[in-house]
Design a protein around this nucleic acid. Structure first.
Length: 650
RNA sequence: GCUGCUGUAGCUCAGCGGUAGAGCACUCCAUUGGUAAUGGAGAGGUCGGGAGUUCGAUUCUCCCCAGCAGCACCA
């Protein structure tokens, strides 16, 4: 057989007979590399070590030191090993798909009996047995008919369906982990023992629809995490524990911010502390928006269905709306109302009062609008997804030519706001025209260009989501990630060519004729509820002073200091600081601990020494030490620090 | 909405076919203590709601409600 030339990453080239495998090359380079090799890249294509190489190629070997590739392989093989373990334990279970995901993998099974927590332990044990066997992984390309027959004979209908959906020109590849076989794109490890037996864990089991389709059967999905070593696994589990500690639902209880109860699912009961936080944020937003030329309004929460019919919501959004009927006693005014799920139709009503001139545009109407949406029961999640919420909503009525500048202006506002609130980084997603849409391609071209141009002008990175725009116009979404790694959409900007027309919004142009304005729906925080959830998690409850609902606790060390404590509190309050006195009959240790847990940023301890020289001893949340300051000095210092960022002379 | 799990004191949780228990929190008493829990005593529960099985149900069964994880949904 002819020799081929294999070039290695260090520039060296070696000559081998054609048909040599990656494994053989690795062993040839060194015995230890042969053992350590996980997989390889042939001309940059991630491949199995067992695949023969028939022509000159660039060649690279991956071992567990190559983090990205190693994790991909370990998790992928772990998925197969888990599927094998499950089928060895319960031969009737049907296998479906099992991809690698962040931190691990999942595999979906069809089994009548639910998997239990104990089953997960049993499966883990079986997986370790398979790993310890160090059985070789091998692969073959099969033709379609053979693969289909194989799976039909083995009663694996899901696999047959998968094969049917793979494009006809693609090779079908089979992998064996020992005797167990699965259809897979690969590549895989060289043998099962390369998955570290002490570095994976099965985390949970949950339902998942076959092919993500809610009209199809629900399968059982087992999630696992896997790493290159035990230390990384431990670190990951530790990280999950830490994330749980900053879960806003937990902090909400610990800091006494809000609660939920059965009688009003998905509706927040804000407590004094939580509502203080909410108001501080709202006041801040109001100032920012006023400064940016928005006009604040307020519109009805309960509105006749006629308006929703006109806006199109009744047809398209009915099942997500809370409706009310007038009772029999008032039958002569019987009508159906809906709690508003959005503010836009009401805002158009305000716009429509009186004639608007092109000189009035852009016309920016803002409302802290209280909305209700009947969200599916399973989708609710603390403050992040609720049924009753308040948006920092606004609608900008403008000409098509003004879209770009208004978009840019909005992104600047949003960036400023996010920065002030501690989010240096956020994601922008740009959604373009969907298949089914209103308006001409011409208008879409211009609108998309305006939105995309604005992001580009500001130099913020973004991703494009083709076809995900609303039927009435393209949109930008602004996203942040919560403590447990879930992504949430907060801000949004959507161009709308449809609703203004449907609801009869017009302006008189320079040509003295009527025109329909474009409407930009936009929200910065999205909903206060969701944003506060994210904010709580982002700060882990340790808010900067201006946001903290309880800013200062002045605590007496001995009761003879009570009078001075009360005096200090009233001086702070006089300057707008949210201060409280703690003159309970408790030791200072006890008070410090309690207020630290309550995440109060500043504790001022006061004993007889402080009474003598009219001072306080300040302790910051999270610090061990304390420092004594004169009363006037401390008041000035705290007043400055407690000033919201937009009111600071910068 | 779907699959699975959970629901016991304000919170975290134990328990069990014979009508309940711990720690913390709470109240009272003593203690005046210098930066993450002073000691003692006391009070507190229709065991998520309803129905059934049973002599007897917080415990077993069914239905409903809510929460949790994931899926689907998020115009």
């Amino acid at each position: 057989m002819a020799d081929i030339s294999i070039s290695l990453p260090d520039g060296a080239a070696r000559s081998y007979p054609a048909g040599i495998t990656g494994a053989e090359i690795a062993s040839d380079i060194s015995k230890s590399l042969g053992k350590a090799a996980f997989a390889c890249a042939i001309d940059g294509v991630f491949s199995d070590l067992s695949i023969p190489i028939n022509k000159d190629a660039e060649f690279q070997i991956y071992t567990s030191k190559d983090e990205e590739q190693a994790l991909e392989l370990i998790r992928h093989d772990a998925a197969h090993i888990m599927a094998r373990a499950v089928q060895e334990l319960w031969p009737d279970v049907q296998v479906t798909i099992g991809p690698v995901i962040k931190n691990g993998w999942y595999y979906d099974f069809d089994r009548d009996e639910p998997f239990t927590e104990d089953d997960l332990k049993t499966i883990e044990k079986k997986m370790r047995e398979i790993i310890n066997k160090r059985e070789p992984v091998r692969t073959e390309v099969w033709d379609r008919a053979r693969a289909i027959k194989f799976y039909e004979d083995n009663n694996e209908p899901y696999k047959v369906e998968l094969i049917d959906s793979i494009p006809g020109d693609e090779d079908l590849r089979m992998y064996w982990h020992g005797h167990w076989q699965d259809l897979c794109r690969g590549p895989h490890l060289a043998h099962t023992g390369q998955v570290p037996g002490d570095s994976f864990k099965l985390m949970s089991v949950a339902g998942a629809y076959w092919r993500g389709d809610s009209s199809r059967k629900m399968l059982q999905r087992i999630y696992g995490v896997a790493f290159r070593n035990k230390v990384d696994l431990k670190a990951h589990l530790h990280m999950l524990e830490e994330a749980e500690k900053r879960d806003h639902r937990r902090l909400g209880r610990e800091m006494d911010l809000f609660h939920f109860q059965e009688e009003a699912p998905g509706m927040v009961f804000w407590h004094p502390n939580g509502w203080t936080l909410y108001r501080v944020l709202q006041d801040y937003m109001r100032r920012r928006q006023n400064a940016d030329g928005y006009l604040e309004i307020n519109t009805p929460m309960v509105v006749d269905r006629k308006l929703w019919e006109a806006s199109g919501h009744w047809e398209k959004y009915r099942e997500n709306m809370f409706t009310t009927e007038i009772d029999d006693e008032h039958a002569n005014e019987k009508r159906t109302n809906a709690l508003k799920p959005m503010n836009c139709p009401c805002h158009v009503q305000v716009y429509n009062q009186g004639l608007k001139s092109y000189r009035d545009l852009p016309y920016r109407l803002a409302e802290f609008g209280s909305c209700h949406r009947y969200e599916p029961s399973g989708s609710m999640h603390g403050l992040m997804r609720v049924r009753g919420f308040t948006q920092d909503d606004a609608h900008i009525f403008c000409t098509e030519a003004q879209i770009a500048s208004e978009t840019e202006k909005f992104i600047k506002l949003l960036t400023r706001v996010y920065q002030d609130l501690g989010f240096a980084e956020f994601e922008i997603k740009f959604s373009t025209r969907p298949e089914v849409r209103a308006g001409s391609d011409d208008v879409w071209d211009r609108a998309e260009a305006a939105l995309e141009g604005a992001i580009k002008a500001l130099g913020h990175p973004y991703t494009v989501d083709p076809g995900e725009g609303a039927f009435y116009g393209p949109k930008l979404d602004f996203k942040l990630t919560d403590a447990i790694g879930r992504e949430w959409q907060l801000g949004t900007l959507q161009a709308d060519f449809v609703v203004p027309e449907r609801l009869g919004a017009t302006y008189i142009g320079e040509d003295s004729h009527k025109h329909t304005p474009v409407m930009l729906h936009r929200a910065t925080l999205g909903s206060f509820e969701r944003f506060l959830g994210i904010l709580i998690e982002n700060y882990a409850g340790k808010f900067p002073l201006w946001l903290a609902p309880r800013q200062v606790v002045v605590a007496a060390i001995v009761s003879d200091a009570d009078e001075w404590v009360l005096e200090v509190v009233s001086r702070l309050k006089a300057r707008g600081i949210r201060a409280e006195a703690d003159v309970r009959n408790e030791k200072i240790n006890y008070k410090v601990r309690e207020h630290s847990i309550g995440k109060v940023p500043v504790i001022l301890a006061v004993g007889m020494r402080e009474v003598e020289d009219q001072s306080v001893s300040m302790r910051r949340l999270g610090s061990k030490g304390s420092a004594v300051h004169g009363i006037d000095e401390i008041v000035e210092l705290l007043v400055v620090e407690a000033t919201p960022p937009d009111l600071r002379g910068q």
